[in-house]
Design a protein around this nucleic acid. Structure first.
Lengths: 260, 260
DNA sequence: CCGGAATGTTCCATATTTTGGAACTCCTAC
DNA sequence: GTAGGAGTTCCAAAATATGGAACATTCCGG
């Protein structure tokens, strides 16, 4: 029985398990992911073997396929950033998201700061066939998403600056905020108003409202996303109020105390 | 070819990979871990199969064996709590820890807040054969460790309370702080003084000095741990100064700006 | 201390599964 | 249209994973 890499003297090593670990080690090295051919090359597995491993890991969510690039990257099963804690949190927040979805008939999201981006942890989709919906494990930038802005209000401004310096503030739509100064001003507004708005800044046809969940101990926020034609700017305050109400209630339920 | 659980209609599923995923799913459910027999029971694998899988995963650090309880639990390869970011951070901090180890000839640690505990990310061990050293992936409570105290100074006091209420403040040694009020007072001292001290509170024969790394964006701290007989209380300020100096330098290096 | 139960570790013949190469499909660029 | 590259499918047989049983170790109770 031969196994690649160091088994650390451990007997009874299973080669297929080692191969899984090789792939999991690799997939963590690059957030944007790898093509099948790259995985095969780096791991030195035959392409068909690599394909089967990746497909199996994908079916179990340890690996996911980026819908745009087709690259294989870290999946949601690997994403619980604080493991237990995030899983428990998502489970407890899901009923609220479901209720909001039923009430407002749009897509609800739970997002977390993950490195320099927002990562979608939980998504409860709109009943409409035309909907604005990310997928679990998707990541979006901080500067042009409502989730990003809501979370940015809860973290150190110096940290926000570091992130944006590092990631850039790419123009995704004509409405995208691309200067740090403008972004800071938006954050002030966001903070005073109590909710964050992505007004066709991330997706030219999309609008999104988000509120942070302070006191939870993790940089998380919930949001409602909708096609812009169904969520007029005039409707935003009403939606925000529903989100804020749900946020207050769920924080209370989770922490056993009320948010100040 | 039969595979357990939902393959989601994915063809070319590899049974051994599914089994790895079953174990990884299970191991994430309980921080304190599982015995071999429990893993075998829950997964319904024959004991010898479960044993081989766990051993292989252990050799690759996705699973680790708790040295005290012998239970199998999540390993460091699963621990990079912010994945990329923590790996990069540890790589950049290691040379500093190594230099401090060479200078002070004791064990240096990098720890992070992980759920309700401190988790050891990086350890550079003392050259002495008698040393106080945790192992990567080990977890310790917040209330009786210098790392825990240093990190507690950087997070919301309400969060600290929640953690301690949940985890308790178990007496580990006669010197352990077991009341929240006393702990808060220690944190005030820690904050004013600039460093945290575990004065035989976690280990009756151990002393530990820690400083937080503010502005990094993660709840992390570095510490020096030593047998108490080699680290007298009078030596603590000198050690703390070396740690603080290194902390200032590495924060500057990592963030590209100086800590305020 | 002894015995029994429980947990962990080792071994082995063979059944099962994984394997890797080749063929095929699809897509893109020239 | 053609070529090349990435992804997908297939299959015979080589390789490995398998599971049960035996063995070793530890723990607990009488």
């Amino acid at each position: 029985m031969e196994h690649s890499g160091d088994s650390g003297g451990k007997p009874y090593s299973i080669r297929a398990v080692q191969r899984v670990c090789n792939i999991l080690d690799l997939i963590q090295e690059k957030p944007e992911g790898f093509s099948l051919t790259q995985v095969a090359e780096v791991t030195q597995f035959p392409k068909s073997s690599a394909f089967r491993y990746l497909n199996t890991l994908e079916s179990r969510r340890y690996v996911m396929r980026d819908p745009l690039s087709g690259l294989f990257r870290i999946g949601p099963a690997f994403l619980p950033l604080q493991s237990q804690q995030l899983t428990v949190l998502a489970d407890r927040i899901r009923p609220y998201l479901t209720q909001l979805r039923d009430q407002l008939e749009e897509t609800l999201n739970l997002g977390i700061l993950d490195g320099n981006c927002v990562s979608y942890v939980e998504i409860v989709e709109s009943p409409h066939s035309v909907r604005l919906a990310a997928r679990p494990g998707d990541r979006d930038p901080l500067h042009c998403t409502a989730l990003g802005k809501a979370i940015a209000c809860t973290i150190d401004p110096a940290r926000v600056k570091t992130i944006l310096d590092s990631e850039g503030m790419a123009q995704r739509t004509p409405a995208t905020i691309t200067s740090f100064q403008d972004y800071l001003e938006d954050l002030v507004t966001t903070h005073l108003r109590g909710y964050a708005l992505d007004n066709c800044e991330n997706d030219v046809d999309g609008r999104c409202v988000a509120v942070a969940l302070p006191d939870i101990g993790l940089p998380v926020a919930i949001s409602l996303s909708a096609p812009a034609y169904r969520l007029a700017v005039d409707d935003v305050p009403k939606v925000a109020e529903a989100l804020e109400q749900a946020a207050r209630q769920l924080i209370k339920d989770i922490t056993g105390e009320s948010s100040s």
